[in-house]
Simulated scan of single mutants.
Amino acid sequence: MTRIPDAVAVASLDTHRLIVAVPNKGPAEVSCNLPRPVAASVLRQLADSLDSPAGRCDTALATGRPCPVHDAPTSPRGITSPSRALLDDAQGVGEAAARGIRKAQRPAGLDALLGYVAASMADEEQAAEEPPALTADDVRDALAFNADDRDQVLATLRDVLLDTTATRAPEQALAAARILLTAHARQLAALVEAEHNATQSRWGLNRSTRGLLTGYSNARRTIRTYADRLADEQALAEGAANEQVEP
């Protein structure tokens, strides 16, 4: 015959701030309209109270010091006052009842379960509050967005520096620097090439302009080599990072 419970309690977030349901089988369910750090603190306090030794009241647990009522010394000459005796008797009955409740109703591993739920809620809150990291693709997207700007690299550098919402580790900052400097170097190479072409178109290739045009060509080649080296270093860094992420 199926056991019928003595009472059924119905709770909702309209009347409760935190509801923890621990079925006999299956995972626990947590409903909460408290801030996650507050809920995690409440669950930790509940786990600590279930694990606390018998004979310690809430005041002693909260302060870490002897309770001025429950742990007060006896009166002079070792004689306990009637009020103190009644208090001790009540405390003893309460402790015995608490021990019986813990033994009879506490599911196995409940303290560990509550601790796990509290820690997971705190981790989720921290992960939700942590801003996304600046990635290499973010920098490339910013360059593409500023493609029509008068100075594409300068505008992108401005946007990256102003974006304080994204976190930057040293590796991410280095990646952003490589990408921006690569684009800037290629921009300079294009300017040198344009000057080379303009000079040759205006004056032609002759004895007077040969040295100047050769200097332009050498400068353009040097800048392009620098840009290619930065691009290769960034490609190697991204490849190594992808290998670490893949299982």
Rank of each mutant, 00 (worst) to 15 (best):
A54K: 05
V30L: 12
C32D: 07
P76I: 02
L110G: 01
A144E: 13
R210A: 10
E29V: 13
Q126E: 14
Q244E: 11
L50C: 07
T222Q: 15
R210N: 08
A128N: 09
R150N: 07
T80H: 08
D71E: 13
A119H: 13
D137Y: 05
A219I: 04
Q126A: 15
A28R: 06
D137L: 12
P82Y: 07
T225C: 01
G78Y: 03
L180G: 07
E124L: 05
A11R: 14
L87V: 01
D58A: 15
A240N: 10
R224Y: 12
G215N: 11
A231P: 07
C32V: 11
A169Q: 10
R140A: 10
A7K: 13
G78L: 01
Q200Y: 11
L157D: 09
D58I: 03
A198W: 06
P37M: 02
R158V: 04
M121F: 07
E129T: 08
P66A: 03
P131V: 00
H70V: 03
R168L: 09
A104L: 14
M1R: 13
A62Q: 10
A166Y: 08
G239P: 02
S52G: 09
A198S: 08
E125N: 13
R77P: 00
E246K: 14
V245Q: 12
G78T: 00
A54Q: 10
R207E: 14
V117D: 01
G94M: 07
D58M: 04
V20L: 09
D88I: 09
P170I: 02
A142P: 03
P27S: 01
R168T: 11
G92Y: 08
A96D: 13
V93Y: 15
A235V: 06
A72Y: 14
E29R: 15
V192M: 05
G115R: 13
A240L: 13
T59K: 04
